Amino acid sequence: MKRLLRSLLLPVLVTSALLGGATTATAAPATVGNTDGDGLTVRSRPTSASTSLGLVFDGRRVDISCQVRGQSVTNTRGFTSDLWDHVPALGGYLADAYMSTGHDYRIPGVPDCGGQGGSPVPVSQFHGQPNQGEDCGPASVVSALLAAGVTPRGWNASRPVTAINQARADMGYDPSWNDPNKFGTNEGDVKRALARNGVTATVVFNDLNRTLAHVRGGRPVVLAGNMVSLPWSGRNVPHFLTVAGYDGAYLVLDPASQAIVYRASAATLSAYYDHNLGRAGVLL
């Protein structure tokens, strides 16, 4: 198969929001704390970039139905955690760093909020590594695995570049230097890296309807296209990104951006998809 170029030169700064929720499960009591009176924001998803659903204050007791990994949060006492707690009564998530649950991390017996896999965790490709301009493929592998509820090889939420480099190595490339004769990665490389993480994937060409139906069915996709048709970009560069879920809009994780979840229509993704070196999806 012809080698497909997926290179990218500069990060793009944008903002967005994410809507959604989780299903009710076995409840565990907890208490909000360490907000210094400022209150803790209830979020629609396990990321501080998602929609605010209101505030709760120190001393508020809640019942947690499930827990999930998301964006790392540091509380006012310097404690950092990537765990988020879903509270059905509030309709959203609270950062576990601010919660007194009686446990250092997961609450025994409380399930993962994984009814449709994991949660959308944006992963930037830009960390100063030698191949950062070409690492949209490896970074999309990492974010797609997280969206599928699979911990990527080498994953550390405070240092995602380790998992990105591991994904590049799993593709068969040396992550420690930039080979001028090898630019970007292709769909076969993405599939190979996913397999190294125990995930069997299918590459689908020229069938966006099937690809987006896969996302609506609850599974992520690594989608090939061109950034020139993305409303938050406009750069004429072949690219990989992850479509992590669907809640009435498609939840997009673009490794060329900040750690933000985008909400895109089918029309937006169709425009991105319909380019030379695009028109392909890797279905997890």
Rank of each mutant, 00 (worst) to 15 (best):
A169H: 13
P255L: 04
T35E: 07
D174V: 07
R279I: 13
P152S: 00
P88I: 13
K2D: 15
G39D: 07
N186R: 01
V87H: 07
S124K: 09
G115Y: 09
N75I: 00
S176D: 15
L208N: 00
F79P: 09
L40E: 12
L83H: 07
R196H: 08
A264P: 00
R106C: 01
V199M: 07
A147S: 15
P180T: 00
C136S: 05
V228A: 13
A147R: 13
T76P: 04
G172W: 13
V215N: 05
A267Q: 15
V123T: 05
L284C: 05
L55W: 11
S143Q: 09
Y272C: 05
V222A: 08
R153V: 03
V110F: 03
V73M: 13
Y98H: 09
S44E: 14
A224W: 04
R219Q: 14
T185E: 11
A244F: 12
G78K: 04
V110P: 07
R192K: 15
T242M: 04
D170L: 04
I64M: 13
I164W: 06
G218W: 07
L55V: 12
L194C: 05
H86M: 04
A224K: 02
L230W: 12
L146S: 04
G117K: 06
V123F: 03
V282G: 12
P29C: 03
G20Y: 14
N181Y: 15
L19R: 14
